[in-house]
């Protein structure tokens, strides 16, 4: 049963499933705070289907991953190793980090890029119970006026935004739902 769980749950049609999943990621990153559906992955718990789909779509042997305590189970490690071949690393070296917001603390441990290469920064996949209840007002690129959205906190993202163009970018995942918060977004509490 365990081995089957590791080997299964990937995209059934990798080229087309990952194309659709990417479009969800793209729309999410382009329109901060708006919820997108992302499907196709069935990863082992506690990894959500949305987080699993993001990893299948974006992670591979060239992208080191940090797995926070909340998600560091043997099944998750094996599933990521089998489907993404991504090396598991310490937080500071990670291109992607996966875990609950609390487990990812302190966020200061993640790469935020350099002045010449701000893209050399981490993307956090923050697993949430629910991302449908707004508690913040967002504005900035991708948002026509303002957008209300769920965020696990406010202050950390205000601090992240101040560092622009440096900073980390976040996906928030719950079930098969996904929203994003790039470093460029201005965050206020609702």
């Amino acid at each position: 049963m365990f081995e089957a769980e590791v080997l299964s749950g990937g995209f059934s049609n990798p080229a087309q499933d990952s194309a659709r999943a990417f479009r969800a990621c793209l729309e999410a990153m382009a329109r901060p705070g708006r919820i997108q559906q992302i499907v196709g992955a069935v990863p082992p718990a506690p990894l959500s289907p949305a987080a699993g789909a993001i990893l299948l779509t974006l992670a591979d042997a060239t992208t080191p991953i940090f797995i926070a305590k909340s998600h560091d189970t043997e099944a998750v490690r094996k599933w990521i190793a089998f489907h993404c071949s991504a090396p598991v690393v310490v937080a500071g070296e990670a291109d992607f980090a996966i875990g609950t917001w609390d487990a990812l603390q302190p966020v200061s441990q993640f790469a935020i890029g350099t002045a010449e290469y701000p893209d050399r920064s981490a993307t956090l996949i923050v697993e949430c119970e629910d991302i449908s209840a707004p508690m913040a007002t967002l504005s900035g690129p991708g948002i026509e006026t303002t957008q209300t959205a769920y965020l696990p906190t406010i202050d950390a993202f205000v601090a992240n935004g101040v560092k622009f163009p440096l900073g980390y970018d976040c996906y928030f995942t719950a079930g098969s739902q996904l929203s994003a918060l790039p470093r460029s977004t201005k965050v206020e509490s609702l």
Binding site: C25, L26, T57
Partner: peptide, 10 residues
């Protein structure tokens, strides 16, 4: 795709 997402973020 990773490059595109970074592009949107910055």
């Amino acid at each position: 795709r990773r490059a595109l997402l970074k592009g949107l973020a910055i």
